[in-house]
Design a binder for these strands. Structure first.
Lengths: 152, 152
DNA sequence: CTTGAAAAGAACTGCCT
DNA sequence: AGGCAGTTCTTTTCAAG
């Protein structure tokens, strides 16, 4: 586990708010020089605290207006079954996230589609044909709010 | 909806892979000049196709080793109930994502905690005391794979 | 749409306290 | 660890084909 001081936490808060702002801006906000701020940011990357930056796409504007969460229960659950399922599901382009979870369902999938009929195609042709699939539960996303989450 | 040509899609693919690479690198990979690539990237931002960049934090290394998905069913579901719930849940720092969904549950929450006992504290003190909360289902995250998703 | 050049700014490096 | 000065690289704008 990585230990951060107060300054590092403030830097992370700023970067979570806007990952594109330069080290000089961060420094000015915290009363640090540009190199000092830059060195700390670099250290946050090197230590693995920051894994990288992800592009935030507007899938709706790109023609994918439907997002559905699928809870998937496997019929058979050996190690091979899990591997097979994960390999097969990773080949479906409409699947954005594959989450292996503990609970009523074994996997949670985030799936995007152009519209409901496009989603039906993905569900019938792609999801239901995955190896070992048992029960499937679907939840349509209405709206979503992402928050910074706790830091330190 | 935004129309993209093949080149724009290739640029998005590259940026999804690594959002930090400069326009010159993108251009070289696609056989475009640096200003041409830069202009296209800029256009993708201006058109709203790219909403921005998000910092990808390693919460595990930052001391938050437990991620739990909560399905929440509201006991009462008027407009005021939804607003009240969303406002209250947004004030909990451990909640990373609030998803309003259609299905068996009304909301899906992504919650991070330091460990299981810390999660129990969040669940009992924060989640179960939210206004209008009915049934709650929990799923512990074992592993997660994020994929680029469909582009165009 | 492209190239090339130039200016502005950010990232990175050494050296110093 | 932080600051200062200087170098390198990217971004951004401009002129022109």
């Amino acid at each position: 586990m990585i230990a951060l001081d107060t300054t590092d936490r403030l830097i992370l808060r700023e970067l979570v708010r806007d990952a594109t702002q330069p080290a000089s801006t961060i420094g000015r906000k915290l009363g640090l020089s540009q190199p000092a701020a830059w060195r700390r940011i670099r250290r946050l990357y090197d230590s693995g605290a920051i894994k990288g930056q992800r592009l935030d796409l507007d899938h709706e504007r790109l023609g994918f207006g439907v997002t559905v969460f699928l809870g998937v229960k496997l019929a058979t659950k050996g190690r091979v079954s899990l591997d097979d399922f994960e390999r097969a599901v990773s080949a479906i382009p409409e699947v954005q996230t594959v989450e292996h979870i503990l609970g009523l369902y074994d996997y949670r999938l985030r799936v995007v589609a152009r519209d409901i009929s496009d989603f039906e195609r993905v569900l019938r042709r792609r999801i239901m044909t995955l190896p070992g699939v048992g029960d499937v539960e679907a939840n349509v996303l209405l709206s979503e709010e992402r928050r910074p989450g706790p830091i330190g």
